[in-house]
Design a protein around this nucleic acid. Sequence first.
DNA 1: CCCTGATTCGC
DNA 2: GCGAATCAGG
Length: 169
Amino acid sequence: MNWTDERVELLKKLWSEGLSASQIAAELGGVTRNAVIGKVHRLGLSGRAKAAPAPAPRPRKPRPVTAVAAPARPMVAGNTVLAPVIRPVIEAEPEELPDPVANVIPMADRCTILDLTEFTCRWPVGEPGKGDFYYCGSRTKTGLPYCAYHARIAYQPVQDRRRDRRVAR
DNA sequence: CCCTGATTCGC
DNA sequence: GCGAATCAGG
């Protein structure tokens, strides 16, 4: 590709409009950004007036939404009042979430609210007051109120939980 | 590591 | 004159 009058005019126009050298190169086609910059200098139109405030502030990747603290309802187990469940703010990648099908809680682990300790997973299953309501009861992840499986679900952004449910159905 | 423009220098 | 390579910087 050679610098025809036409291409030079387009270069001048785009450069004055504040496009970056690489953008102009892509627009023209057949040249690299180095070629554009070189030409710009040879034409003596370096140092643009004002356009392009900052060198193309690129859009930032949207962060995964972080989980919000759950309502702090004290849990009672026998004489022991368990600390309210506070959900730490943790970022989780949706891809890392466990397979919902794998959520089979062994009968041996299931327990009522009375059986909960700081070492049993407090993930509720079913509706309170209904017949089949129980807690996961698996060994908790150290320092967390849930087992490894439910911790990952608990700290997943709400939007993603909703999406997963839709997909699973 | 993505990008920016500036400069150099062999062609 | 051209532009790849390189540099300095955001």
